[in-house]
Design a protein around this nucleic acid. Structure first.
Lengths: 210, 210
DNA sequence: GAACTATACGGAAGAGCTTTCCGGTTGAGC
DNA sequence: GCTCAACCGGAAAGCTCTTCCGTATAGTTC
């Protein structure tokens, strides 16, 4: 039903240009906001405007691609961090990456909440990609005994996202600090805390049986 | 210091046009979003573009005026409702008006959260205008014994605003329902509830000694 | 109520951004 | 190496925003 005759592969230069455009758009959005002139993006990507509009007929398509790429990267960072660090440290670092994503969305947030139907699928994509990633990190930390086991991945994603909402008086650093605080609150005082900032002296309570 | 020589009063036609522009902008924003072409607004208001730009040099000025007008209307509705209905009913109706305001902000919300310094003063204006209004309504209902007395006006404003935050899957009706629920939760089971929906039979608990 | 003046109006013009379109170019398969 | 579909770049058309200035009018004074 869905598998029509695949016409041909996409050409290599086309793929290169799409990647270059997304990368350029990410930088420009971050610097000049989502409403930055298209030319700024095409110049940075080193392509003509025609190329931009062929691959992204609507501006929202480009915005969506940038956001999805950002989400993908953070999701992919999960397994990588889990491989490189212990469960507790991996979790901390991943949350940092996540708040970073929420922070760079700065300019994008307004676009996302604009009610434009083009973005309707994004929240779903967000949860679908990040939920399992965080769930795996949490589970590892819980198994190791470093973390309480009564918080779900999606709840945590939501909570951190809320904390990172820009507050008029505060800078963007505020959300990250609050998020760290929240995650620290999840740690078991008797578990292996993150290096260098272990909380209160351990209370004897049958340290992690792993 | 602040009172220089007041040059003259604003001309009547100017005031008329400003009002017409705000009214038109409100409709257009609601229909086509905040990014609607300026001409759409000026046409609806029946003025030239020059007039728009004279009174609202920046687009954010117009947005701000629309929001403030909305806030003012809801604030002014407080005393009016208090005069026309009993305390409990007045409160319910006012909260409905308030959720309506939060709902129409739909298109505006993205602009408000954009971090544009032009909107920095709005949250303050919001609280300053609506806080006392709701406080008066609450106090009347508490005095009458219809309401618990342990919730502050600003907290309630915040809470309802949170509940009305658009959630991806839900429609705009969702927030209003949640808000009604919240307010119903404030009612004293032994007090005179709103007509036609008195809650559970009173639980003997030493009916308010106040 | 007539004259005067500061204030305000409307819309044309200028500038910039978005989007379309098409001749020329290039990657992929044979 | 040849062929063709896919792709590229940038000129040009179409919109929108913003400024500017000649004209109109509300408010004031006599």
């Amino acid at each position: 039903m869905t598998d029509g005759p695949v016409p041909r592969r996409r050409r290599a230069d086309a793929r290169r240009n799409v990647d270059a455009l997304i990368e350029a758009a990410r930088k420009v959005f971050d610097t000049s906001g989502v409403d930055a002139p298209a030319k700024e993006i095409t110049d940075l990507a080193g392509v003509g405007v025609g190329t931009l509009y062929r691959h992204f007929p609507q501006r929202s398509d480009l915005v969506k691609a940038v956001v999805e790429t950002g989400i993908d990267e953070v999701a992919d960072a999960g397994p990588a961090l889990a491989g490189a660090y212990g469960p507790g440290e991996a979790l901390t670092r991943w949350i940092d990456r996540y708040t970073e994503l929420l922070g760079t969305k700065r300019g994008l947030a307004s676009a996302l909440h604009s009610g434009d139907p083009a973005f309707a699928g994004l929240p779903g994509y967000f949860m679908q990609r990040l939920g399992p990633t965080l769930a795996a990190l949490l589970e590892a930390a819980v198994t190791e005994g470093a973390l309480r086991d009564d918080v779900g991945a999606e709840d945590l994603l939501h909570a951190v996202a809320q904390l990172c909402q820009p507050v008029p008086g505060r800078g963007p650093e505020h959300g990250r600090r609050m998020a760290r605080l929240l995650v620290d609150g999840l740690r078991r005082v008797d578990g292996p805390g993150p290096p260098g900032r272990r909380p209160e002296p351990p209370i004897a309570r049958g340290a992690g049986s792993s």
